[in-house]
């Protein structure tokens, strides 16, 4: 991958926090005045990957895996302990104006809009902060209003908006300067399914329209499935997987599930595979992928079956299995 093609390049990026520790109680509090115990916590442990211009990548990991720390390093809020990060050719921690003007970090739980006044007033300020020409600002605002259905929301005080409405305004505010790189940290957290879908569609459209690069973290796999062909999975600070979403499923879910409808579900299926559920004429079996054809054949031959379907493991379950990997077991 050539450097010019990459919007984000990370090499051996590492972030270690020093955490002070003490036991509970007054005695421990007094002792800690004299000698403070501290230990190093590796939040991000030597990760490397890159993201192409215009690519949308899902950045996945359980809580505390190092996702937000990485995004903060990429947006210049945190200095890496070691290693290198470059975004659009800039070193983020230098916080150069040209860099900050071309990227955005949206955090689902953080607000940039001023609480007491309508969002449009904050937008106007952003126009001056990012020095967006008036014509371009008007055009972008119109597009954002249309795509996110902002309409009347813009003139209401932000404190009177619902969580979903506020999030839409937050996203619009973060994109008025048409950033070329978007770091989205849980942009749909706490939103209902309709609003999640709306924001997903919007991100996809923004990417298509402006060729923007998107690095997205989300706990909702629907977000990732809808937007990202490629995922990077981080766990315990290290990269566990980097590749196509379908390859992730292949690698971490060597099973398929077979749904069988039959007259009598109380038969012994032990010989065919692992029984996941058994209720009202339906049995769900988990079988190794390689055995799927053989087991299906045997089931059809040996039992009186009304219906049989074979499915891949749902992506949520795959991710659950990936996140359950012990630290030593990583690839």
């Amino acid at each position: 991958m050539s450097a010019s093609k990459s919007a984000v390049v990370i090499q051996n990026l590492r972030k270690t926090y020093q955490v002070h520790e003490r036991e509970a109680g007054l005695g421990a509090a007094l002792r800690s005045l004299v000698s403070r115990k501290s230990r190093d916590v590796k939040a991000v442990d030597s990760i490397s990957f890159s993201v192409d211009m215009g690519e949308m990548v899902g950045f996945l990991g359980p809580n505390g895996a190092g996702k937000t720390t990485t995004l903060k390093m990429l947006s210049g809020l945190l200095y890496p302990t070691s290693g290198e990060a470059r975004v659009l050719g800039y070193v983020p921690s230098r916080r150069e104006r040209a860099f900050l003007s071309q990227m955005t970090l949206v955090m689902g739980q953080r607000n940039q809009l001023v609480w007491d006044i309508p969002a449009i007033d904050s937008f106007e300020l952003n126009r001056e902060v990012y020095r967006v020409p008036v014509a371009q600002y008007k055009q972008t605002l119109d597009e954002l209003v249309e795509l996110l259905d902002l309409g009347k929301l813009l003139t209401k005080p932000v404190r009177n908006l619902s969580l979903g409405e506020r999030m839409k305004c937050e996203i619009a505010g973060a994109l008025l300067h048409r950033p070329r790189v978007l770091f989205l940290d849980e942009p749909t957290i706490g939103l209902d399914v309709t609003m999640q879908r709306r924001i997903r569609l919007f991100v996809a459209e923004y990417n298509r329209r402006y060729g923007a690069t998107v690095l997205l973290t989300s706990h909702y796999m629907a977000d990732v499935e809808a937007l990202c062909k490629r995922v990077v999975v981080i766990h315990h600070g290290s990269i566990l997987f980097d590749g196509d979403l379908t390859a992730l499923v292949e690698r971490f879910s060597p099973h398929k599930t077979i749904h069988v409808k039959l007259a009598d579900e109380n038969q012994d299926f032990g010989a065919y595979g692992e029984v996941i559920s058994r209720e009202e004429g339906q049995v769900v079996l988990r079988v190794p992928k390689a055995d799927t054809a053989r087991v299906t054949g045997q089931l059809l031959a040996n039992m009186e079956i009304h219906d049989l379907t074979v499915e891949d493991t749902p992506i949520d379950e795959v991710i659950e299995q990936v996140f359950a990997q012990p630290k030593e077991g990583r690839a």
Binding site: S75, L77, A98, V129, Y130
Partner: peptide, 9 residues
């Protein structure tokens, strides 16, 4: 503070 540091200002 984080929000302020993200701005080019």
């Amino acid at each position: 503070m984080a929000q302020r540091l993200l701005r080019p200002l």
